[in-house]
Amino acid sequence: MNFEIIGEISNIEVIAVGNSIRILPLLKVEYGQGRWRKLKGIATIRLNNEEIRLAEVHWFEAHSIGKRKMRIKRFLD
């Protein structure tokens, strides 16, 4: 992850659950079994160069495993 989330993630939406996730086999091998979901939300982030931006972020999440593979989808400012 080449950025840091500052504050809370808002407007969280579920994009896909279970077999609808393209990389589900990879997630299971890398992080273990779980009820995997792909989510998106809006967050204020700090980039490596200390720049602060508003961005749409996507990530995968499973109960007791947590957020994984978080990435910036697009900048909103």
Rank of each mutant, 00 (worst) to 15 (best):
M1N: 12
M1V: 08
M1A: 14
N2C: 09
N2Y: 11
F3V: 10
F3H: 09
I5K: 04
I6Q: 14
E8W: 04
E8T: 13
I9P: 03
S10G: 02
S10F: 01
N11A: 13
I12C: 06
E13L: 15
E13A: 14
V14P: 02
I15R: 14
I15E: 13
I15M: 15
A16D: 12
V17S: 12
V17I: 14
V17R: 14
S20Q: 14
I21Q: 09
I21A: 08
R22I: 10
I23A: 10
L24K: 09
L26G: 12
E30D: 11
Y31C: 10
Q33L: 13
G34Q: 07
G34M: 05
R35K: 12
R35W: 02
R35A: 12
R35E: 15
W36P: 02
W36E: 06
R37K: 14
K38V: 05
K40D: 03
G41F: 00
G41L: 05
G41S: 07
G41P: 03
I42S: 06
I42E: 13
I42A: 07
A43Q: 01
T44N: 08
I45E: 04
N48W: 05
N49E: 11
N49L: 07
E50R: 06
R53M: 07
R53D: 01
R53Y: 02
L54K: 10
L54G: 01
A55V: 09
E56W: 00
V57A: 10
V57C: 12
H58R: 08
W59K: 03
F60S: 05
F60N: 04
E61L: 03
A62M: 02
A62Q: 04
A62H: 02
H63T: 12
H63P: 00
H63K: 03
I65K: 01
I65C: 02
G66P: 05
K67L: 08
K67H: 04
K67F: 02
K69A: 06
K69T: 02
K69Q: 11
K69I: 08
M70A: 08
R71E: 09
R71V: 08
K73L: 11
K73G: 02
F75H: 05
F75M: 02
F75K: 02
F75T: 04
F75E: 02
L76W: 00
D77I: 06
